[in-house]
Design a binder for these strands. Structure first.
Ligand SMILES: [Zn+2]
Ligand SMILES: [Zn+2]
Length: 854
DNA sequence: GGTCAAGGCCAG
DNA sequence: CTGGCCTTGACC
């Protein structure tokens, strides 16, 4: 394209402010892409093939003047690739944490200490950041749209947005849910306040201040299906394509607000008249319940949530996400978990050339047609790829004429779009992999799916070199490693245990991934901190994998912390539970209520007994607390000592492994002495520890100061406290472990994490946290997970110990109503820090922190 | 330069 | 709308 030669003069002058410029560059570029796309669309519609190439035309400027950027030109971000290339190697080794750097854009807390944002240096994968940056841009854009929308809404005379106004809005804005991106299945940006927030609600505790102020939406997609269709429409009403907007412009044009007038609505495949209860975007957008009368005719189609307001809270986001999947009778948590396993296995399979069945051509995971490769996360055919893309891009909503269980085969796949798309979701196709900006080519960041493949490839070489060492390492970990190859419910990893990838991926390593994945999954579900960037969360696993010898807790001493980790859970009985035909509750399947409170299909062995103990308010406080404190004796992490100076990175790593081993062993011991140990299946304990060990370690660390400080000692201000912690850590690393590291490097790597830990530690010390409270918090943190349908008792136990904590506080601090809340509020901070830790290269820090003597 | 997973195109 | 084929472009 000739326009590729065009320069972008406006970009040359601002190298001084890399941060800002990168952001703007991304914005400009993305605007350009959008504009290009829109122009194309409008050209098509107007049937006026006059302007051959908009990038050459140089006309139709908007205020950004982005047209001068050629399509063939790389993202403007790449211009910064030349900056500070001296540290390229360093950065290369940090490629995993790249996404997390990006994330610091949206985490304003990162600025608190004046730490400069990312992209200070060149990164070989910097182009891979474009996507993230663009997505970040979309946040800004969306905010703009929201403001605009608010303006429109506030104008009383405004009955309906004008065409021009609509054009100014993003599609998702037009649908009334700008922030409610349906992130990818694998996406983890939903920083739900579930979990703790629910606990907080129970206790009338508002933790909203814990919420983050930013939002990541890497590849966030919004499909306005939330408020529409249940799966089981009466046959006469389907199949119906509720709404279609072949491109953004049409989606935004007034015509799109009137389904009947929309060209795509007259698609010949429509066998029945349009159901009036289709997504009425106009009424949704304008906050006018105009369709109520129609909806009342068909209560099942009543939108599950008020579609008229923009979801502001994480709960709402989560709820919307849930509802979207509920439309397909799916539980997105489960899908998400399942996907990780499947995507991983498929990706591996694909890159291994299908060890087992080489002769067989790849089959589409949806329809079993001949697959053409990995598409949107799974192996599919061209048809299913295109179908998924169109569905997501055009935000199409389907319904099933039958019961939502139509067969999806090569020959039948076009019979029911609903069931086809449902199977796509079910099989783990990643919504976020469909690019909102429609930018062709390039690669999606691994964060969009799962970094497994990237990791695999990247680390294959490294592992090859260190094969012997790692195998030794794995065998060193004896029980942890032995026999712990995951056995997937799906065909996949389990079928290729002898593949070379296995060979290069020692069980320990794999477990590290899974531990991180488990933590990640858990974090998604019940985290509450300011961190919500999907990239970084995904990168957690990568870092954990590459840089840590993180432990996987195996309580059974024989296998499979992995098989019990969340990501390996077998799919839930969602379909049966929510099947409209078998539903006895009469609740519309789309309202997601069954997701909130899934019927306990498989209750624990002795539910009666458990309930009797934990469903009652705690009576004998001192005894209960005493039990917990007794467990602490099993857990003297500071007993584990580093008694030698590491000579190099390798020996440091080994030492850390050893240290970690002993600490993990103590954690296991602690778990086994917990009063409710026998009330919970081993597998659940395993999963809990696997996903929580780092958080617990950080809690231990942060509580240490408060628990060891006497009343008389004065507590300095936070900065002093933080600084001393960092210095201590640096001193320990330098002089005890022999790992040379400057304060700056340390700050760069774990500064944020340490700040959060220190903050919590400072708070604890300030509040004079005592042992009784501490042990309660520890248990609560351990149990603070998304409700496990199979083990509802977990919630009960957690609530029980929260009541214990509350009562303990009431006893010790009568009248102090805030203490309980304040203490609980520290837990999200710890989880926050934990997530930071997982993405750092120094995941062993908590081992150290718990070992360090002051 | 090759790979491959994005998006686009367009006959059917 | 579908899906086979083509173009893109980041990564290897
Ligand atoms: Zn297929
Ligand atoms: Zn169907």
């Amino acid at each position: 394209m000739a326009a590729g030669d065009l320069e972008t003069p406006h970009r040359d002058e601002s190298h001084n402010d890399v941060h800002e410029d990168v952001g703007q560059g991304a914005i400009l570029f993305r605007n350009y892409k959008l504009k290009q796309y829109k122009m194309k669309s409008s050209q098509l519609r107007a049937s006026s093939p006059t302007c051959s190439d908009i990038s050459e035309s140089g006309s139709g400027r908007d205020d950004s003047g982005v047209e001068s950027i050629s399509r063939s030109q790389r993202s403007p971000i790449s211009e910064f690739s030349d900056l500070n290339s001296d540290k390229l190697d360093d950065i290369r080794s940090r490629s995993d944490s790249c996404g997390s750097r990006i994330s610091s854009f949206s985490d304003t807390s990162n600025y608190s200490r004046g730490e400069p944002p990312m992209l200070k240096r060149e990164h070989p994968e910097i182009h891979g950041l474009n996507r993230s940056l663009l997505d970040m841009q979309s946040l800004c854009e969306r905010k703009r749209f929201e403001e605009f929308a608010m303006k429109i809404k506030s104008e009383p005379s405004q009955g309906e947005p004008t065409s021009q106004q609509m054009r100014y809005m993003s599609p998702s804005m037009a649908y009334g849910n700008p922030m409610n991106g349906l992130s990818a299945l694998g996406g983890l940006n939903m920083n739900s306040m579930e979990g703790l927030s629910r606990m907080a609600q129970i206790n009338s505790f508002n933790m909203n201040n814990m919420q983050s102020n930013g939002g990541n939406h890497a590849g966030m997609k919004f499909i306005p299906v939330m408020s529409s269709m249940p799966s089981g429409l009466p046959p006469m009403m389907s199949p119906v394509m509720m709404q279609s907007s072949p491109n953004m412009m049409e989606g935004l044009s007034p015509g799109a607000f009137h389904p009947h007038s929309h060209p795509s609505m007259q698609h010949p495949s429509m066998k029945t008249p349009f159901h009036p209860n289709g997504l009425n975007i106009k009424s949704e957008f304008l906050n006018e319940p105009k369709f109520n009368s129609l909806q009342q005719e068909s209560p099942r189609n009543t939108p599950p949530a008020p579609p008229t307001h923009t979801p502001r809270t994480k709960e709402e986001e989560l709820e919307m996400k849930r509802r979207f999947y509920a439309n397909y009778n799916l539980d997105f948590h489960e899908i998400e978990a399942k996907c990780r396993a499947q995507i991983a296995s498929q990706a591996e399979e694909a890159h291994n050339g299908c060890d087992s069945d080489n002769d067989e051509p790849m089959a589409c995971g949806i329809c079993n047609d001949k697959a053409t490769g990995l598409h949107y996360g799974i192996i599919t055919c061209e048809g299913c790829k295109g179908f998924f893309k169109r569905t997501v891009q055009n935000k199409r909503v389907y319904t099933c004429i039958a019961d939502g269980n139509c067969e999806v085969t090569k020959t039948q796949r076009n019979r029911c779009q609903y069931c086809r798309f449902k199977k796509c979701l079910q099989s783990g196709m990643v919504l976020a992999a469909v690019r909102e900006d429609r930018m062709p080519g390039g690669r999606n960041s691994g964060a969009v799916y799962n970094l497994y493949k990237v990791k695999y490839k990247r680390h294959k070489k490294r592992n090859e070199a260190k094969k012997q060492r790692l195998q030794q390492l794995a065998s060193q970990n004896g029980s942890l490693a032995h026999g712990s190859l995951p056995s997937l419910p799906s065909s996949g990893l389990a079928s290729i245990p002898t593949s070379h990838s296995e060979e290069f991926m020692p069980p320990l390593k794999r477990m590290a991934i899974e531990a991180a994945a488990a933590a990640r999954a858990e974090f998604t579900r019940s985290s509450h901190g300011a961190y919500e960037n999907r990239n970084e969360v995904y990168n957690n696993s990568n870092s954990a994998y590459s840089d840590s010898q993180s432990q996987c807790i195996d309580l059974s001493q024989k296998s499979s912390s992995i098989s019990s980790s969340p990501s390996m859970r077998s799919p839930p009985p969602m379909l049966e539970v929510t099947d409209p035909n078998s539903s006895t509750s009469g609740t519309p399947s789309q309202n997601g209520s069954q997701l909130e409170a899934p019927p306990p299909r498989q209750v624990s062995p002795s539910p009666q007994k458990q309930q009797s103990r934990y469903s009652l308010p705690p009576t004998n406080l001192s005894q209960i607390v005493g039990e917990l404190i007794a467990c602490e004796k099993e857990m003297d992490t500071s007993a584990a000592q580093m008694d030698f100076l590491a000579q190099n990175e390798d020996s440091l790593m080994k030492a850390m492994c050893k240290l970690g081993d002993s600490i993990v062993t103590q954690l296991v011991k602690w778990t086994k002495h917990l009063p409710f140990y026998s009330d919970i299946p081993l597998a659940v304990h395993t999963q809990l520890l696997t996903s929580k060990w780092h958080e617990i370690l950080l809690l231990i660390t942060s509580a240490q100061h408060a628990l060891t400080t006497t009343d008389n000692q004065s507590l300095g201000d936070f900065n002093t406290y933080f600084k001393s912690n960092m210095e201590k850590l640096q001193y320990y690393l330098n002089n005890v472990l022999g790992k040379a590291i400057t304060v700056e490097e340390l700050d760069q790597e774990v500064g944020d994490m340490m700040e959060k830990v220190s903050r919590v530690g400072h708070n604890f010390a300030r509040m004079r946290l005592n042992k009784a409270e501490y042990v309660c918090l520890k248990v609560i943190l351990l149990l603070n997970q998304d409700p496990n349908p199979d083990h509802p008792s977990l919630v009960a136990i957690k609530d029980f110990y929260m009541a214990v904590l509350r009562d303990v506080i009431m006893q010790q601090h009568p009248g102090n109503t805030e203490r309980f809340c304040d203490l609980l509020a520290q837990l999200p901070q710890i989880q926050n820090a934990s997530s930071l830790l997982l993405q750092s290269k120094m995941i062993y820090i908590p081992f150290l922190l718990n070992t360090m003597k002051s």
